[in-house]
Each structure stands twice: as C-alpha cells, then as structure tokens.
Write a protein that binds this DNA or RNA. Sequence first.
DNA 1: GGGTCGAACCAGT
DNA 2: TTCCAACTGGTTCGACCC
Length: 636
Amino acid sequence: MDNGESSSTNNSSRPWESYNTFFTNAKAGMEGVDKEKVQRIVYEMSKGSKFFQNEERKEALMKQKIEHMRDRCAKLSSSDLSNYHKVVDKRILELEATRDLSRIWLHVDMDAFYAAVETLSDPSLKGKPMAVGGLSMISTANYEARKFGVRAAMPGFIARKLCPDLIFVPVDFTKYTHYSDLTRKVFRNYDPHFIAGSLDEAYLDITEVCRERGLSGGEIAEELRSSVYSETGLTCSAGVAANRLLAKVCSDINKPNGQFVLQNDRSTVMTFVSSLPVRKIGGIGKVTEHILKDALGIKTCEEMVQKGPLLYALFSQSSADFFLSVGLGLGGTDTPQVRSRKSISSERTFAATGDERLLYSKLAEIAEMLSHDMKKEGLTARTLTLKLKTASFEIRSRAVSLQRYTCSSDDILKHATKLLKAELPVSVRLIGLRMSQFVGEIRNSDPSQGTITKFIVQKDSSRQDLDDNDSFDLDASKNCLSNDLSLSFGSHETSYAHLKDVVEYEERSQIDSEKVIPNQECVKKKKGRNSFSISANGPLYWVDGYKCVLCGIELPPSFVEERQEHLLIFILLRDFKTKNLDLVLPQHLQNEGQLTEKVNSKRKKQKPDQKDSSKHIPIHTFFTKSNQNSNETQRK
DNA sequence: GGGTCGAACCAGT
DNA sequence: TTCCAACTGGTTCGACCC
C-alpha cells in the first residue's frame, strides 16, 4: 500500500507508482527491497484484470470520500473549530486521567511463523526463498523470499514472477497449531491469562512476574524468547510497553528475533509516539491512513492530537476518541474478559460462473460445511448472511434474520437459496455464508446504550470472584437472556439487585419441588443449600414438564427459546410494573399475549403495545450514558 | 428522535 | 500452465418503524 509517499499523483509514464495494492515496506524483512521493480512487476501482472479494475473502482471511491471530507473541512467555521477545540481539550483531560503506567505488557510475535514451522519439518528449505500457500494466494513468506518483495496475502503467481526460484509449501494448520500450543505453554508460565491474538502472537501482562522475580520487562522478554526457542526451535520477537497497543508496535521494531522495550513513563511514551506513522497502529489500515493523510494532512500519531478538533468534527465519536487516544499513546492495560465468538462462516472461491445449477450446488456445499462447523461447536444462530463476490470482484452481502435459532444445513440452505435467488442472474467467483446472533447473545447497536447482559458482563469483569453464597450465576444469566431481548434499565446497582430478586422469586416458587421438573439442564441445585443457580437454558421450571409454575401457561419442552423468553419476560414485567417502572422490550415481545401466540403461530410480526407507557417513567431515563459528556459534542 | 436491522466497508491474521 | 483466500470482529450509515 502506501509507503508514506503520495499515491494520488498520477504519473502517466510510471503508472505503477500509484498502484500500491500489495507492495509495502511496512512488513519486517522488506527493508532494502527494490520497491520500484516490485511495484512495476505487480502492476504489469495486474493491469487490465478484473481484480485491477475493481481496485481502481475502490480507489476512486476512496478519493471521493477524501474529497468529501476536504469539503466538509473547508466548510468548518472558526466558531465550529473553537468549539471542537474545547471538546478535544476536555477529552484529553479525560483520557489522560485513564493513563495507567503501572502495568507491563509484552507482545510476542513469532517470526514468519508458518514458514519457520515448515523449515523445521524440512530443514532442506533453510536459506531458500519459500512461501506457504499456493499459486492463488500465499499465507506467509520466509525472510529470504521477502527480500524479493514476496509477502503474505500476495497471489502466488505474482510472487513467482518476483522470485522465480520461490518454493511453495502447502498450508498445514495441524502443524502450526501444534507449535502454537508449545509456545502457549511457555506464555502461560509468565501470564496464565495471556491473550492469544492468533496462532502466532500473544499479549502477556508480565507486571506480576516482573515484580515477583525482581526482573525488568526486557529481562523477562529475553528469557521468554529464549524459552520459546528451546521448546520449539522457533524464534520470536517481542515488544514491552505500558499497554497492548504500544507493545504491539514495539514488537515489530527489531523483527526478526529481537525485542524493543519502551519505558513506562509519560514523556518517553509521548516522544515515541510523536514521530510514529499512523499506519503502524493496529486498526489503522490502508484506507484510514489515506483518509487521514490526504484529507487532514495527518501522518504521525502526534498530529492526531494537534488536529484533534478536525477529527472530532469529521469522524464519529468513537473513531475520534480512538485517534486521540492513539495520539496520546494510550491503549488497553486491563485483561479483558474472554471474548465470545460473534459469528461463524464458511466461504469458497471458484472459477467465476453464472450457471445457476452450479451456484446452487456450491451453496449447498457451503451450507453443509457451515452447519457441520456449527454443530461441532454447539452453536445455533438466527441471522444468516450470504456473501457473494462477483466476477468483477464486487462484494455483495444479503442478510436475513430467521424466526428460530438453527444450525441445520437444511434451514441454512433454504434461506440462503432465497437470498441467492434474489440476486440472479449474476456471475460470481465466491460464495460465503455466515451465521451470527447466537443464542444468548443480545444485539445492541448503540455501544453507549446499556443492556442487562452488557451490564452483567461489566460487573463480571469487575467482580471476578462472586461471593460463594450468592445464588445468582452471572454466566448463566448471560445465556438465559436469549434472542434480541434488549432491556433498558436504571442504575447499575438497581438492575443487579433486581435480577437477584428474579432469582429469589424463582426460588420461592420452588416450594413443591417434587412436581417441578427443571427444563433440561437449566437448574443446578447447589450442594447443601436450598438455592439454585440459573444455567444454560434459563430459569424455567415446568410443572409436569410443560406447565409454567408462575402463570400456568403450557409450553412443551421443545419450545426452549419460548420458555426462556416467557419466564424472563413474565417476571420482569410483573416486577417492573409493581415498581411502577417502564420496561422497554424488543418489538416482538412487547405484549404478553404474544407468548401464547408464538406457540401457535410461530412468531407473527408483533406490534408493541405502548398504551400504558405514558404513565410510567421510562426506565431508560435512569440509565446514565457512560460517555454522556463527551456525547454532547456539537457534531450533530 | 430513538431503536433495530441490513448492507457495505475496514482491518487483521 | 496456474492468474488475487478464508475467516472473524468491528464501525458506519441509511431505511424503516413507531
């Protein structure tokens, strides 16, 4: 991509100079490459192709975007700018207050991982230019190959042109996973809660191990790298800094087989960041780099702070916040909760075709693969997205939310077929299917909007160890809130107490426990105590296996989701009503009668009943947006 | 005007 | 001779509904 030089200048005698699709010297091991030669070869091999035309189309769109931004920039009045100045000043103070220089983070990155593993298994490859992958695409290249300009994500046929002696080795994930496990065993000795970025990289909080052993971050990094080498025979690079964002930047500085330590003091961090190109930051890619540079003249992280008012004027709050925090050298310092999977997908590329029968058969194969993967992981989801890459490399996606959670290939195929049918006729070279919105997951598009799940997750992270006497199982409660149930709620503490009340209420309903049959494994009786925790399928107790103990409604055991929704909504509505509060429910759950209707007619579209809402104080008014102050920018 | 959802795009490995 | 991947997470924006 861009190497810090303008790509917008179009030199007709050297057209390749503006074609920066693959070449970058940002990758370790590519310094000193004959950049112009590589660019020219890549350009010559690409020009005129469908792929090339699509790249041109995308570049034109990007230029349009940049122009639009410049226009908006030019239209800003001095009073606008002065207002944004105030916003930035305030935000800087807020962000500075979050600066934590007490932690020591280490980022480890294995050197040309796949290629190094392949060389271990076949030492004859040592010293020869080699790439892992095939002629269509290579996953990574060793350092000998990088000298020729060969790099990851480059098509193999171009790589071969750049380096005719290049050896191709097919990808073997089993091998890489094995070596990745070996490295992780080492990482665990330094931080049992390390964050695995991918097979070949990880973040470790080494604060404690440094303190306990009286060693510096650099010394621990040396030791860890040597330990990884003796366990695997592979080299890695490391970066040590006060936060993960900086540690990652640092690990790239002395690659391969090196390390860089950034001292934990503010002025060192600010000096480091001052000349750091924005592209070095994780999350800023080719497009964002271009926009920042060509529309706002921002090339370094320091300039993000200097031009903060423009960033807040032109970007969304979250983007501007991110840019500003980068400019201040801030990054994640806490160990986040284990992140759960958000989607699962399967896609395949093939020779472009418009043959409908062939397309349907490809679709069936992919539906089958996806269903297989979902079953393997025990996932069911309700949003299906069809992805198509047309013969001209245009990406299209079409999504539909299903009535039920599913992982069945028949269901997936049935709906995917409908989606594909609507696109025909079309010539495509890739079909992909993705399933998202898993059971237990709550969709919330506004990050500042609170939901019970989100709140619980936050609570969970701040209270790692719940009181053992507490019968409320937080993990389980995440699962019991199924579907797109989104609840606006009052203060955090009130909500927490309220949910506890729900469980206590439930326990009180357990008097005749002989007749109560727990729904599947949803109720776990705690040893020696007459208390229950909510588990995977929700707090549902059903008399004789089908009748709700709370209201008598009959729901057969197979209606798992409906049972979950029913009990939760029943209790919440009752409770919120007695507290004279309003509960904001998703549309399809906004009247109680629907619960019965769903059993009979499987989720007809519901119109919410808002008749009584006016008498209640909307519950969401109690929720204080965490970023309310910063949301008061004049952007809108 | 707020919330939800779909579509497109961006980024990283 | 081969002719630009597979997968995932996140953000933004607009349409639509109420």
